[in-house]
Amino acid sequence: MTYFADVAALARKDILLELRSRDTLPAMLLFVVSALVVFHFSLPSDASAAASTGLLWIALLFTALLGLGRAFAAEREQRVLDGLVLAPCDRSAIWLAKCLGVLVFLGVAEAVALPAYALFFEPVGWELVAAVVLADLGLAAVGTLLAAMAAASRARELLLPLLFLPLVIPVVVGGVGATVVDDPARYLGFLALYDLIFAILSWASFEYVVAE
């Protein structure tokens, strides 16, 4: 149970940091709405509903990327990550807490993005909401691990999208599929499978990314 107490302490700190500095979340909100507006102008008027769904997923993906790029910003200053790594808690607790923080940010961004999408483009069905929730889990799990990797490299901001995008192509497939196909169950199941595989893998390997 101390594991979850550690996770709670770390996640609370992330939320506190964001409430105080307010860098990440406002940027994500503004970005996702701007992206939707840009997409309106980049879609020909006779484009199908499915095309706008695809663009919505791109907007969500890049919003997640924007948030992930900042995920370890506070830790990079002053080498705080080393301080956390030296604490006796299991290192995966750091990953889990950071994941929860990323999930909260993504959830808030999508709570704005989906109504905006419904307003500008197409109505939002339950499949889309379910797919977004499942996709968030996978994006946060993989993204947090890769953000920690990118933070350890020289290229940082440049590297994260390169590491991230090939790995989340399956999430896009599952997300778009669940929204445009008549029978979304297979796609939602696929997203759940992705979440499971990559969450376990990220949880188990985080220790090696932050410590030698």
Binding site: L145, M149, L167, I169, F190, F198, L201, S205
Partner: peptide, 21 residues
């Protein structure tokens, strides 16, 4: 090493994704 391990997990998952797509 961690990234290479993600790679072998990605191969079957991507294959499935491409079929579904």
């Amino acid at each position: 090493a961690v990234y290479a391990l993600f790679g072998v997990a990605l191969i079957p998952v991507s294959f499935l994704a491409i079929r579904l797509a």
